[in-house]
């Protein structure tokens, strides 16, 4: 379960991913209004065992984001 998906993609991956010329890039966001915030819908998955959940402060592996001072991704 520890390999839960972490959708906090570090910035440099994002930049390289979208480095191609804008026209070629299939932008999934092009139909979305600008300057709005979007929260992906959470699904029930990657549930911690209760003792660990109490310790980590959440039962959802995806929401377990301890402050690490840099990059904010779980080590």
């Amino acid at each position: 379960m520890s390999n839960c998906r972490n959708n906090a993609m570090p910035y440099n991956n994002y930049r390289t991913m979208h480095a191609q010329a804008p026209m070629m890039r299939r932008d999934v966001w092009n139909d979305k209004a600008l300057a709005m915030a979007y929260v992906p819908w959470q699904t029930w998955r990657d549930i911690y065992e209760v003792e660990k959940a109490l310790h980590h402060g959440t039962i959802f592996c995806e929401l377990d984001k301890p402050f690490l001072g840099r990059g904010g991704v779980k080590r």
């Binding site: 959470q42 029930w44 209760v50 003792e51 959940a53 109490l54 959440t58 039962i59 959802f60």
Partner: peptide, 16 residues
């Protein structure tokens, strides 16, 4: 521990 998990599930169920 089990009470915490119950509350977490309850909060998730509020929106799902």
């Amino acid at each position: 521990a089990v009470s915490f998990a119950v509350v977490e599930a309850q909060l998730f169920l509020d929106t799902h």
